[in-house]
């Protein structure tokens, strides 16, 4: 584990040396030899790991918009998601949609009352075959080994090809500096700058320190988060005992967000 992480770090350093002139760093590492060991990087001891992270949303446990608000609020608060009044510039990671919108290809005129009016949590699906990752010209959006589709805000050039590619409308763009529109800044998490795309990150920063995503934490059991690769995980248990649907299955993107309706 340690050996491989060191190797990837050096590989990375070497790769960035191509463009960023990281040679002094490598030299320093080399010359610091002797009794001292070389610096290295690793995952935190408490970091949660999985083959493929997934979210199961039990919509039967929700009645109204009110039940979903705490999840949206905590998500947007800890990630410094701004609240812009202008709808064109809106930024959202987690929000609600009616059935006829979120499952637009599966709706009909005779839905039962509960489903018809129920708000559904909507977010990035962290697809198995993400179209956004395919489209990005700089690898600013990429899929991690654990299935999470992430944004590297440092690298995004703001071409918005990923927004056109995403078949779920999960991505937002910073049409202006977001900072004036963040009521209370979470100092532990960065904000974004104008001109970059953003979206749900499955709380990657929390997983790294052993915490489950914030929305799951405050969901009172309505949301389950776990590893699809682990047959004993909570999500696998829910999937094997309930009928679940995913958004736009015909597209083959393979969302990692499942809905129990």
């Amino acid at each position: 584990m340690e050996e491989s992480s060191r190797r990837t770090f050096l590989k990375l350093a070497g790769f960035s040396a191509l463009g960023l002139g990281a040679k002094p760093v490598l030299d320093a590492f080399a010359s610091s030899g002797g009794v001292q060991s070389k610096p290295m990087v690793m995952k935190g001891e408490k970091a949660l790991q999985a083959k493929r992270w997934a979210l199961v949303i039990d919509t039967r446990k929700f009645k109204s918009e009110k039940d979903l608000e705490p999840m949206i609020e905590v998500c947007h608060k800890i990630h410094n998601v701004p609240k812009l009044e202008n709808k064109r510039h809106e930024i959202k990671w987690l929000w609600t949609e009616e059935f006829k919108h979120i499952f637009s290809s599966q709706t009909h005129d005779f839905l039962d009352e509960r489903v018809k009016d129920l708000p559904f949590l909507t977010l990035c699906n962290h697809c198995e075959k993400p179209a956004c990752v395919r489209a990005c010209p700089t690898k600013a959006t990429f899929k991690r080994a654990d299935g999470i589709v992430l944004m590297d805000f440092h690298r995004c050039i703001g071409c918005r090809f990923c927004m056109a590619a995403c078949p779920y409308g999960s991505r937002s763009f910073n049409f202006r500096d977001p900072r004036p529109f963040i009521k209370e800044t979470n100092l532990k998490f960065p904000t974004r700058m104008k001109g970059v795309v953003e979206k749900c990150n499955f709380c990657a920063e929390r997983l790294a320190v052993g915490k489950i995503p914030a929305c799951v934490e405050v969901s009172k059991g309505a949301l389950a988060f776990g590893d699809l690769g682990d047959s004993k995980s909570k999500v696998r248990e829910l999937l094997s005992s309930n009928f679940t649907i995913r958004r736009k299955p015909a597209l083959g993107a393979g969302p990692s967000v499942f809905y129990i309706v």
Partner: peptide, 26 residues
């Protein structure tokens, strides 16, 4: 027109720095 459409035009050379053949834009 591509250039004026970029949100972060100063980073345009990221396209060369991180060449990505799976992207049609590349």
């Amino acid at each position: 027109f591509i250039f004026v459409d970029l949100g972060q035009p100063t980073r345009v050379f990221n396209v060369l720095l991180h060449p990505t053949p799976n992207s049609v834009l590349f």
